[in-house]
């Protein structure tokens, strides 16, 4: 196992390379997933606000 981790003395170069590879690619899928969640939340809020503007609350008209 320690032989495997040592990579014949090239541990730093090999493991840093694989680390950069995996980190970059995982970010490439995680970032769009986070963006999707935020976007859906933002869109639903915008739709609700637009809906509220179109139909003003009923009691406003009743008080006159």
């Amino acid at each position: 196992m320690s032989d495997f981790l040592a990579m014949g003395g090239y541990a730093f170069f090999v493991w840093t390379s694989y680390g950069i590879f995996l980190t970059t690619l995982v970010l490439g899928l995680v970032l769009p997933a986070l963006r999707r969640r935020a976007l859906i939340k933002e869109l639903r809020q915008a739709y609700r606000r637009a809906e509220a503007r179109r139909k003003p609350p009923r009691n406003q008209g009743a008080e006159q």
């Binding site: 690619l25 899928l29 769009p32 997933a33 999707r36 869109l43 639903r44 739709y47």
Partner: peptide, 30 residues
Amino acid sequence: TYFIAAMLANARNMLIEQDRNKSWVRRLIG
């Protein structure tokens, strides 16, 4: 396969953001 997956994930976000006022996005997201 990674490229296709990541590209689709990005494209889907861009599509609903750009079409946010279209009826199909309102229907699916709203």
